[in-house]
Structures are given as structure tokens and as C-alpha cells.
Computed example of a mutant assay.
Amino acid sequence: MKNLMTKAAVAALAFGFATEAMATEWNVSVWGKRRAFTEHLEKMAEIVAEKTNGEFTMNVSYGGLSKPKENLDGISIGAFEMAQFCAGYHPDKNPTVTVLELPFLGVNTLAEEVAVSNAVYAHPAAQKDLARWNAKLLMPSPMPQYNIVGTGEPRDTLEKMNGMRVRATGGIGQAFKSIGAVPTSVPATEAYNAMESGVVDTVAFAQHAHFAYRTIDQAKWWTANLNPGTVNCPVVVNIDAYESLSDAHREALDSTVDTVVAYYLENYGKTLTKWDQVLAEKNVTKVMLSEEEIAKFKATAADPIREEWIAKMDAQGIPGQDLYDTVMTALAEARK
């Protein structure tokens, strides 16, 4: 009887450990506060938990795990399992992805942004690039074209933008630099203070970020049609953590991606609707640059910066032209 009881106790204990081992808990590192930019991650956590009956959970942390510019480093050492980052924060760490931040690519919609992002993320060069950080590209955080809010007199010509201090990263920052502006890449979380203290005159963001970081509260004007480009902010997962998932949990994660990106697009549409209302409420002047000024901006920024980027990639052994062609092909396919 004692032997039977001992065997039963051991079996029960072993079952308990097995059940515990089946549970998976991931930490997800983002920054700021919950907003349109993070809704696909919140939705993913919800759906994955439902699909796995609570066995696979994700804790989305807003700044508690890492600084924005250090999320890729945290992924590389396994400090957390999933993270969001923006390529322009550290272009040397993720050079391949910066193709998506080149100015004036001609991407007009969030759906097109998803298409070109997915195409680049699937490119072997991009996957090899991020694997250096033990990171697997999972999904994009698509954002519309950036525009700037500013203080003082509206800057509606390139001449007026000469000497303008602008918070802008990546290719957008390069574009502004090409017309004589002075870009700075302070993290989004510091943009309000930079604007308030006069460190910058203007801030380039997508609409949700002007809301989230309150730069709209200081704005006197907004460029409605400059559209110089956007930043690309992938969601990545630690490769070891991904590969250690059970087949069921990995399938739950992978099969949720398309659903949550579609949810993100739908939700972001509400932000764009709200934007025009807030501009009116805060009496922010809508600045429309002339077609001639925008054409001058493109001529100064688009081709030279693209050619410089391709040459820089080639020098590093990265297929820059092929990555750029991948973007253009994906954009053409998306428009079909």
C-alpha cells in the first residue's frame, strides 16, 4: 500500500511539474503608453491567451524593461522575449530595415506600408541582419507618412525650413538635413520636453505620436501634405524563445499575426479621424506646401539619399539595390 501511495504521489507531482512546464509567459518591451502604435501587441496577447487557454501569456511593459533605443540589445541577451523598436533609433544595428525609412518612397497607405514591410522582413538579408541580435522579425507596426508640428511662424517653404531644428530620425532626418534643417534623434518620449525647452522648433511624427507625446499641445501649425516618409518599427522575438515554444504555442503566435495587424489598421483609422477634430479644437493652422516646394524637396532628398544608402549598403556587403527593388516590387503588387 505504501509503495502504491508513493507511486501515486510521484505521478501526481510529476504531472504537476509537467503542467507547469507547459505554461509559457513572455515579457514584451515597448515604451511610452498604450496607444494606436501598440494595439496589435495588446490584441496579440489577448488572442494568444485565448487560443492556448491561458497557457501562453504575454506581459506588455511600457518602459519597465528597457529604454526605447536598447530594446534590440535586450532581445539579443534574452532579457525579454518580444520587443518593438524603430530602425531609425539605431540604423547601424539594423541597416537592412532602414530601406523602409528612405524618404519619398511613395507609400501612401497603411496597407501599402504593411506590404512593403513584410516583403523586406522576409528578405534573407534582413533576416540575417537581425539574427545578429538573436531577433526574428515578426510583424510591422505600420505608420502613416510623418508630418511636422511646430511653434512660431509656419514654415511653408524649403527656404523657411533652412536652419529649422527638427526632431526627426532615419531617412526623414536625412531628408530635412538635405534642405538645410538641423535634425536631432531624441527618443519620442523626450520630444515634448525638447519642444518645450526650445531644443527643437518642430517635431516629425505620425498622428498617433503627436497625441501620445503631447507635441500637438504645443503646436501652432502642422504640415498636412509634406509626407517625406515614415519610420519603420518592427516587432521582433528572441529566436531562442521562439524556437523553444511548443508546436501548439508557436502556431498560436504565428497564426495571430495577420489578425492583429488587420486590427491595428482598423484601429489606426479612428486616430486619423480624430486628428482633424483635434486640429480644429486647438486652432492649429494646417499648412499646405505648394506642389513646386514638394517637388524641390523630392529632387533634393529622394534620389541622392537613396543612391547614397545603396552605396553604403554595398560597402557593407548588404544587397542595397535588391532591398530597394524589393520595396518597389511589393508596392506595385499591393496596388494591383
Score class of each variant (00 low, 15 high):
residue 205 F to Y: 05
residue 192 Y to Q: 04
residue 192 Y to N: 06
residue 206 A to F: 02
residue 189 T to H: 06
residue 193 N to I: 11
residue 218 Q to S: 12
residue 195 M to S: 12
residue 192 Y to K: 03
residue 200 V to A: 11
residue 216 I to G: 06
residue 188 A to R: 01
residue 193 N to W: 06
residue 201 D to V: 01
residue 203 V to P: 00
residue 194 A to H: 08
residue 217 D to T: 05
residue 201 D to T: 02
residue 209 A to T: 01
residue 215 T to F: 03
residue 215 T to Y: 06
residue 207 Q to T: 02
residue 214 R to Q: 14
residue 201 D to Y: 04
residue 206 A to E: 12
residue 213 Y to V: 13
residue 208 H to Y: 06
residue 208 H to W: 04
residue 201 D to N: 10
residue 217 D to F: 11
residue 188 A to E: 12
residue 194 A to N: 10
residue 204 A to V: 05
residue 196 E to P: 11
residue 214 R to V: 10
residue 208 H to P: 00
residue 212 A to Y: 02
residue 203 V to Q: 02
residue 199 V to C: 12
residue 212 A to V: 03
residue 209 A to R: 05
residue 189 T to I: 14
residue 204 A to T: 02
residue 200 V to P: 01
residue 204 A to N: 08
residue 219 A to E: 05
residue 191 A to R: 01
residue 189 T to Y: 07
residue 194 A to V: 10
residue 195 M to L: 15
residue 206 A to P: 02
residue 205 F to A: 03
residue 209 A to V: 09
residue 188 A to F: 03
residue 207 Q to R: 13
residue 207 Q to A: 08
residue 215 T to C: 14
residue 194 A to D: 10
residue 207 Q to C: 07
residue 195 M to D: 10
residue 195 M to Q: 11
residue 203 V to L: 12
residue 213 Y to K: 06
residue 204 A to P: 02
residue 212 A to H: 08
residue 210 H to C: 09
residue 215 T to P: 08
residue 207 Q to K: 11
residue 218 Q to R: 12
residue 206 A to L: 06
residue 193 N to Y: 09
residue 195 M to C: 15
residue 199 V to K: 15
residue 212 A to P: 04
residue 207 Q to L: 09
residue 211 F to T: 04
residue 201 D to K: 00
residue 219 A to T: 07
residue 189 T to S: 13
residue 217 D to N: 15
residue 208 H to Q: 13
residue 194 A to S: 14
residue 214 R to K: 14
residue 211 F to E: 07
residue 212 A to S: 14
residue 203 V to K: 01
residue 198 G to R: 15
residue 202 T to Q: 07
residue 209 A to S: 09
residue 209 A to K: 08
residue 191 A to Q: 02
residue 211 F to C: 05
residue 207 Q to H: 08
residue 206 A to T: 00
residue 207 Q to N: 13
residue 206 A to W: 02
residue 190 E to M: 11
residue 214 R to C: 11
residue 216 I to W: 01
residue 188 A to L: 11
residue 215 T to H: 08
residue 188 A to K: 00
residue 202 T to H: 10
residue 219 A to G: 07
residue 205 F to R: 01
residue 189 T to E: 08
residue 206 A to S: 05
residue 196 E to I: 04
residue 188 A to T: 09
residue 190 E to C: 02
residue 208 H to K: 07
residue 218 Q to N: 13
residue 218 Q to G: 12
residue 212 A to E: 13
residue 202 T to V: 02
residue 209 A to I: 05
residue 191 A to L: 01
residue 190 E to K: 08
residue 219 A to N: 07
residue 207 Q to G: 08
residue 196 E to Q: 15
residue 192 Y to W: 05
residue 201 D to F: 04
residue 213 Y to A: 10
residue 216 I to Q: 05
residue 214 R to M: 12
residue 196 E to Y: 14
residue 192 Y to H: 03
residue 200 V to I: 14
residue 196 E to G: 11
residue 196 E to W: 09
residue 205 F to V: 05
residue 202 T to E: 10
residue 197 S to A: 15
residue 215 T to M: 13
residue 207 Q to M: 07
residue 212 A to D: 13
residue 215 T to D: 12
residue 219 A to R: 05
residue 218 Q to D: 14
residue 202 T to F: 06
residue 212 A to Q: 09
residue 211 F to A: 03
residue 201 D to G: 13
residue 211 F to G: 01
residue 207 Q to F: 05
residue 209 A to Q: 04
residue 217 D to W: 02
residue 215 T to L: 09
residue 194 A to C: 11
residue 188 A to G: 06
residue 206 A to R: 02
residue 191 A to H: 01
residue 194 A to Y: 07
residue 210 H to L: 07
residue 214 R to A: 14
residue 197 S to Q: 15
